[in-house]
């Protein structure tokens, strides 16, 4: 098994026609997303073409520093996105997300590239797709953590303060809040591992199979992806949890939100 069927623009225009069907149906039911669908379609085309061209260039150069630049841009975009998606403004949150995403994903990526796939850090073919997956997955986990933490600590502030008033440390008083936030952030990872291969063939495996890879090889890669994503998400939340906690409490165990 090797090779895959290449798509050209006429092929893709058929797929684009599917979008027109989607837009027409959404209009019929007055969903109100016509403009967003149009913008989304254009952005999908422009952004994916851009990344296609960039990656083609990066793949030709095969330099570790160029890969590092691409990964940093991804982290920057992830931080921007996470800060925009927070429901409660937290001072210094951009720094918190940046720290979480630089520690979690990069540690996992280093292990995977050096010890598992065993390629040089200049090998963009592996580094960039793996890095992108890990960064975006960790960003989602950190965002889920933060939003749940913010909501819970406000909803349960009376309980937290009742515990503080009894002489509990901030960490002990907010233990349940932290636990709930972790669970909200990591539930997608747990669900993913539970149903993977049963309910869905995940993107990475699907892509490799379409690309002509042996399904068993693709399955091994998918296992690697599942483990690396979960580990990166947990490490990122571990970092974000500690830093977020410091914004919610003073040194004197006072609730500051």
């Amino acid at each position: 098994m090797s090779g895959y069927i290449r798509l050209d623009w006429p092929d893709l225009s058929v797929a684009l026609a599917l979008m027109i069907v989607a837009i027409v149906l959404a209009r019929l039911d007055r969903v109100g997303y016509t403009l967003l669908f149009l913008i989304g379609t254009v952005r999908t085309i422009v952004q994916l073409l851009a990344i296609g061209f960039v990656l083609r260039g990066v793949f030709k150069v095969e330099a570790w520093w160029l890969n590092a630049v691409v990964l940093m841009v991804m982290v920057g975009a992830a931080v921007y996105n996470a800060v925009r998606r927070q429901e409660h403004q937290t001072k210094g949150y951009a720094g918190i997300v940046a720290a979480a995403l630089l520690i979690g994903p990069f540690f996992v990526l280093a292990v995977v590239i050096v010890l598992v796939i065993k390629v040089s850090p200049g090998k963009a073919q592996y580094l960039i797709p793996m890095g992108g997956m890990i960064i975006s997955y960790s960003m989602n986990a950190v965002t889920l953590y933060k939003n749940r933490f913010d909501g819970e600590i406000r909803a349960r502030r009376r309980e937290v303060e009742a515990k503080l008033a009894l002489g509990a440390t901030a960490r002990r008083a907010a233990e349940d809040v932290v636990r709930q936030s972790y669970r909200a952030a990591l539930l997608p990872a747990v669900n993913f591992m539970m149903v993977v291969g049963l309910v869905q063939i995940p993107g990475m495996m699907g892509g490799q199979i379409i690309g002509g890879a042996d399904p068993l090889d693709a399955a091994l890669y998918q296992m690697l992806v599942a483990f690396q994503l979960t580990a990166a998400a947990v490490i990122s939340c571990f970092v974000a949890s500690r830093l977020t906690f410091r914004t919610a409490f003073s040194r004197d165990h006072q609730l500051a939100v």
Partner: peptide, 19 residues
């Protein structure tokens, strides 16, 4: 020490919150 203080000064809130 704030943790020691809070055990010497007990607060009962307006609405009783049990956990």
């Amino acid at each position: 020490d704030v943790l020691v203080l809070r055990r010497q000064v007990g607060l009962v809130f307006q609405e009783p919150l049990l956990f």
